[in-house]
Amino acid sequence: MLIMIEIIEISKLNKTYAGKFQALTDVDLSIKSGEIFALLGPNGAGKTTLISMICGLVRLTSGTIRVDGKNIEDQPRDIRQRIGLVPQELTTNMFETVWDTVQFTRGLFGFKKNNKFIENLLKSLSLWDKRKNTMMTLSGGMKRRVMIAKALAHEPDILFLDEPTAGVDVSLRKDMWTQLHALRKSGVTIILTTHYIEEAEEMADRIGVINNGKIVIVEKKEKLIKKLGKKHISFKLDNELKKIPKRLANFKLTIKDKVLHYEYDSKNTDIHISNLFDALKTENITYKDITTKQSSLEEIFVELVKNS
């Protein structure tokens, strides 16, 4: 495992909109170079606000943001050159062609024309055939990909994607995941927000959960699942079980349609599954099949938000 440096360091970040509404409260967060970081949180949690502040679209009320050790308020130029942003809203100039709009972004970021690079970029996003189309003649999913192409037009090494796959069909979403993984392989740090937990589960190295403007938890994806994950075992019984025998009372079992459900906390070491098996045997409860399930990130996420 290579040592990862912290490419983005956010400390004590606060944002108060229009002097009244506090959208972010004391946010501390570090993003490691080369990772894919997923920021999860319900609507209005402050995800877009946080990203916008790092990208220079929203002013800081207080706190600091450093990118590669440089304060974004002191050295915005050096930093911005390295950052690409795919905003949440599909904002395009509808009269512009795909080719022109991508070139425009590249120029705006101070880069010389490189037609070959743009060609490859558009090809990799399956947009090459549409390069002469104006934005208004594209479908929603295509527009979204143009936004990604624009964000990559100046070869950034930090990429922000604010709900990149909203409104993108399943197969295309999988394509995008593959592309993002490829980007990461080439050394790009990726920070994304999503409401599709499945996406975070598939993509992220680490996950941060934000709610009501506060960071609730930041953890490696596997660790988060392990740490908070509930495990679930269900026994498909041979015979109907009217009620749960007394001996099994402290296992908190539920029964439904000849299936006995057992849920437990994998981090709780007091419980031994074997005890349950022994008890079932003693009670002469037999079963045909066992299935086990680990709670998904989505369930963990709902739980976290509920409790925060």
Partner: peptide, 18 residues
Amino acid sequence: YFPRFTGTIYEQLSAPIS
């Protein structure tokens, strides 16, 4: 005004330009 209206102004604001 037009980029403000369409929202594409985000590009100018996030670009390394003064």
